[in-house]
């Protein structure tokens, strides 16, 4: 029993709570939900084996499912396309400004606000007739659209609210990246007579590439699996225009009690995220980023 000394037992004791958690709240759910995805189950009667029926149904017979997938990718893509350039510009201004604590507190306010508050605040702001935004637009003589009631505009509104929520977070990561750029590069460029525009495009941006890549990847993955805002702000509507796959899955499970099909939907979405992540990790490596050391 030589192995049973303090050197081997101690780390196990320290790991014990996490190990138990991993079994009960990681491996068990992951396995259970895979099992359920091959069954028909409404939680009231025992699960009935269904083979690949749930997967086949979602992928070939359910038009709703494709629609939610498109919405999911529009949302994830939209938040990146708008959010990251914005974060770059704001972080660039922020990193050279004074009173950083003040700016940071302001830009982080949305990030530390709970999603119910965010949704309700914006419901008032984006209200058709008397919301702050449309009243403001009316002051300058512009017609205010139905930000949340027009199905072709609602996804855009949700994306903008999400970008608003995440800006502080992204700005911080970019400004951390900016700070890690060695000052000597700038000094050398300045001695050589480069002006600020050149410095930004030729020095800052290339050296920031790892940070930008990191943001793209993490924001994209967050975007694909995200649904809290849609759930509380629009409930997937109007007319399903903001119904993303994870929200569709949630309602399928807890409103319709189609737990097998919902689990299959979760696994399909997870597989997509997994593939996207692998592709992006490859990009990561090519872009010279080491996410974790």
């Amino acid at each position: 029993m030589r192995w049973l000394n303090t050197r081997t037992i101690t780390p196990l004791l320290f790991m014990a709570p996490v190990l138990v958690f991993a079994i009960v709240f990681f491996f068990l759910p992951v396995g259970f939900s895979l099992y359920i995805s091959f069954h028909k189950w409404d939680s009231l009667s025992p699960p009935e084996f269904y083979g690949f029926t749930n997967y086949v149904y979602l992928l070939s017979k359910d038009p709703q499912f494709y629609r939610t997938l498109v919405n999911t990718f529009v949302f994830a893509g939209g938040t990146i396309a708008i959010g990251i350039p914005l974060a770059l510009v704001v972080a660039y201004s922020f990193s050279q400004s004074r009173f950083q604590t003040v700016w940071r507190s302001i830009y982080w306010l949305p990030m530390i606000t709970n999603i119910v508050a965010v949704a309700f605040i914006w419901k008032f702001v984006l209200n058709d007739a008397y919301g702050m935004l449309n009243r403001g637009l009316a002051l300058v003589g512009l017609p205010g659209p139905g930000w949340l009631t027009n199905p072709s505009l609602s996804m855009f509104s949700v994306i903008m609210v999400f970008v608003w929520m995440q800006l502080g977070h992204n700005m911080l990561l970019v400004s951390a990246g900016l700070q890690s750029i060695d000052d000597t590069y700038y000094e050398a460029a300045r001695i050589d007579g480069a002006h600020s525009g050149n410095i930004f495009w030729d020095i800052t941006l290339p050296l920031l590439k790892p940070t930008i890549l990191f943001l793209l990847i993490t924001n994209f993955i967050t975007g694909i699996s995200y649904f809290a805002l849609m759930m509380v702000l629009t409930e997937g509507g109007p007319a399903g225009s903001t119904n993303v796959t994870s929200l569709y899955m949630y309602n399928m499970a807890f409103s319709d009690l189609r737990l097998g099909r919902a689990s299959a939907a979760a696994y399909i979405l997870f597989a997509l995220i997994f593939i996207v992540t692998l592709i992006q990790l490859r990009l990561f490596r090519r872009g010279g980023v080491e996410a974790h050391n």
Partner: peptide
């Protein structure tokens, strides 16, 4: 130890929505 550490890194990739249904019933 290395396996455990890799697991900790890998497990972060599992999105929360995957756990909602099974965890509820567990």
């Amino acid at each position: 130890r290395m396996t455990a550490f890799r697991f900790v890194l890998g497990a972060q990739m599992f999105p929360f929505f995957l756990f909602i249904i099974p965890m509820f019933f567990i």
